[in-house]
């Protein structure tokens, strides 16, 4: 897809597409490796940290067509790969009852290609996004092996379909379920965490250029404290940070104060439980105080460790299952 591109050119491409990276987040190097090694990129991380955005931005950088497969419980190959156009086949049988041959019914014109097959047969450069793979079941994951390893699929009635041009595959996972070793082995791995304060300020300045730098910093710091120090069921995503910043801008704010945090909190916390947790554990005044001071660093570090422990437990669980 990008045979002659260097890492520096790739990083430049990401910046031009409006995607902010930092050396510490390893996003640029890892995505570059996936492209150059021709391997699928498996991106994990909590919801709202920009996993899906990586696929979108790659399609921009490589001027490729983006094909998206949104995974959900019960997704099977008829909805992901192909399905025979049953109604059309039936119609054909009714019309040509006498002269019909079986192979007439199993040709491309009776095939309904779903996202995976569309990506394989595409003549154009394609980025295939398999979003939230952890929501499917293990059988579907195993079914993907052939596609991800060989860039081909087998349709029993027609034979093997080879990719015309290898698509760049991006898989995302929120970690709801452990993925199989087979899948992980076939992929280049990237874990994305919530952005640092500096990175979020850069994102805010890029996506909402009219936002004053001072307010951008206050917003980013407050969000950082909120994510790391309050026991929320759903931490605010980058998109919600942007919504919040835009709302504050619309209201003509130049500084963040407690009254405005209270007034706009529902843009960040989307459940009553989280709002209650926020007021029980912190409140607007303390949020702003912690965002201004270096005080929360220790607490932030403790919460980060607690998260690492949670993941460790996930591994223990996976080891047994």
């Amino acid at each position: 897809m990008a045979e002659r591109m260097t890492l520096e050119e790739f990083e430049q491409g990401l910046t031009e597409a409006g995607y902010i990276t930092e050396p510490e987040d390893r996003i640029a190097v890892t995505a570059f490796l996936a492209v150059q090694l021709g391997k699928p990129l498996l991106v994990t991380g909590p919801p709202g940290v920009g996993k899906t955005e990586i696929a979108k931005v790659l399609s921009q950088v490589f001027k490729a067509h983006l094909v998206r497969l949104q995974c959900y419980e019960g997704l099977d190959e008829t909805r992901a790969l192909y399905e025979w156009n049953y109604q059309r086949q039936l119609l054909k049988i009714q019309l040509q009852r006498e002269s019909l041959q079986e192979e007439d019914l199993f040709s491309e014109s009776y095939l309904l290609p779903r996202p995976l097959l569309q990506a394989l047969v595409s003549e154009e450069p394609t980025v295939l996004l398999i979003d939230e793979i952890d929501k499917t079941d293990a059988e579907f994951e195993a079914f993907l092996f052939e596609l991800l390893g060989e860039f081909q699929v087998t349709i029993p009635e027609m034979g093997t379909v080879q990719a015309k041009k290898h698509p760049l595959v991006v898989l995302t996972s929120n970690g709801e379920r452990e993925l199989s070793d087979g899948l992980k082995r076939r992929c280049v791995f990237l874990h994305v965490e919530s952005p640092s304060v500096n990175k979020e300020v850069r994102i805010l300045r890029t996506k909402v250029p009219e936002l004053p730098e001072r307010l951008a910093l206050q917003v980013a710091r407050a969000i950082h404290v909120l994510r790391e120090s309050v026991a929320l069921h759903k931490i605010p995503s980058i998109a919600e940070t942007l919504d919040w910043a835009r709302a504050l801008l619309l209201m003509g704010r130049e500084d963040l104060d407690a009254a405005w945090v209270d007034a706009t909190l529902t843009l960040l916390l989307k459940s009553e439980e989280d709002v209650q947790a926020f007021y029980r554990e912190m409140g607007a005044e303390k949020l702003l105080w912690e965002a201004r001071s270096a005080g929360p660093e220790k607490k932030v570090e403790q919460h980060r460790q607690a998260r690492a422990l949670t993941d460790e437990a996930g591994q223990a669980a996976a080891g047994r299952t």
Binding site: R26, L33, T44, E178, K184, C187, F189, D311, E312, G314
Partner: peptide, 16 residues
């Protein structure tokens, strides 16, 4: 940093 990123991308497969 880049060396660490390459090794992490290819040898690590889970966040934990």
């Amino acid at each position: 940093n880049r060396v660490e990123a390459v090794l992490a991308a290819t040898l690590v497969k889970e966040p934990n």
